[in-house]
Design a protein around this nucleic acid. Structure first.
Lengths: 225, 225
DNA sequence: AACCCTGTGGACAGGAATGTCTAGACGGCC
DNA sequence: GGCCGTCTAGACATTCCTGTCCACAGGGTT
């Protein structure tokens, strides 16, 4: 039986770290320290296991990274697409639904997304996966604008402005308290949609955002080494 | 005389690579391959010089990086600030002046900017330098909006949307022909300023942009290794 | 011509990471 | 109880990079 075949099946007796343990640790390392921070040595130490065990589960580090990429695909994208399709009474409320991704770490992990983005600058396969995801996300947001009557090109531009702006926000890695963000939200809505938001557009988003006010992501990537 | 003092002065006889040569090569490596791609070994090979010569000019690699950061400071920032202060007949024309940074590689090098951004996730000093630059840039753009009558908070949000959106655009590393970009520019202007642009707002920008249509930046960072 | 000062090159040591190989521990199965 | 298949640990080879040391090349100066 080949090693790789142990994907499924009950964990045998003397297993210290399962295949999924390695993958989980790698995913966490990717988000916290970037692709270069995903080292077999480091993972083995965190799992309290010898480094060479790794090679029983994976042919080499590159195979692990392949699998990591597959795991990431759709993770954040799924939330954005779903939120952009949620029912809403107005375009401003609809944009607020998308905003939920940006205030709820459970819906969207900027650190992970940026780790993949950095990775994509070095790896062609990561590049392709990322392009696919970015395409899906903007397409979904664009469709949202079109549902509310924005013409084709206008919807395209507004979708881009909304999405790129958020990615840029994360690129700057700003630490801004939730209250400050909420205070400016009406201005953002006005800019993104071109329509002044009514109070009821924001009400439910405001409550949702405050739930996550404390649960801020830790700093993007561990510093030092 | 200390080595470091050789900053100025005529290049002596048996110099193969000057201090500035090392710095230039490092800057180019930073933009093309990111901070991890700036290795003494690689630079020495590109300069056709022994690796150990490096240590005559610099105490160690970290000192080189310090200097690189100082060199970068203000490089891109200066263009953005200057463009945002250029005289313009309308807010839409003013925004077009800022747009020039995004179509002219001589004004703004996204690859360099992103290399620093990635670097800043690992280094506290890079982080501080970057925060300073981002602050200057958004402050300048915000001041621009305020000159055209946008109230305080509205100008803040519009400046952010404009600037973050562009950073996000670069984060996605999209290859979009200049014609396509120009075609959408009126929509972007409408979204950013909330005012429909007139044709004369765009005319001179359009000409400027086409001058640089061919001079696209090569891909963000060299792939492979 | 002798001398110094500015660079340069090659040898060496050391650290961090990957990947290989082999012996063996451990539980399930006959 | 013994075997086998599943995992693990440790030793080893290799690669790539940093940083140090020392010998020495080659103009400019006197």
């Amino acid at each position: 039986m080949t090693p790789e075949a142990s994907l499924a099946g009950a964990p045998p007796g003397n297993v210290k770290a399962t295949r999924d343990d390695w993958l989980d640790a790698a995913m966490s390392a990717l988000a916290r320290r970037g692709i270069a921070g995903v080292t077999v040595l480091d993972l083995s130490e965190r799992l309290g296991v010898s480094r060479s065990s790794f090679y029983w589960y994976f042919k080499n580090r590159d195979r692990l990274l392949d699998e990591l990429l597959r795991r990431w695909e759709g993770l954040n994208t799924h939330s954005i697409v779903r939120q952009s399709q949620a029912p809403a009474a107005s375009i401003n409320e609809a944009v607020c639904n998308v905003f939920r991704c940006w205030v709820d770490p459970d819906l969207f992990s900027p650190r992970l997304d940026f780790a993949v983005r950095e990775w994509a600058r070095r790896s062609e396969t990561a590049r392709r996966a990322l392009d696919r995801s970015d395409g899906e996300r903007t397409a979904a947001i664009r469709a949202m604008f079109m549902r509310y009557g924005y013409p084709f090109e206008d919807a395209l531009v507004r979708a881009r402005v909304l999405y790129y702006m958020q990615i840029g926000y994360y690129a700057l890695d700003i630490k801004e308290p939730m209250e400050a963000r909420l205070k400016l939200t009406p201005h953002y809505l006005q800019t993104f949609t071109g329509v002044a938001p009514r109070d009821e557009d924001l009400a439910s988003f405001r409550a949702y955002a405050m739930l996550h006010a404390g649960a801020q992501d830790p700093p993007m990537v561990e510093t030092g080494r």
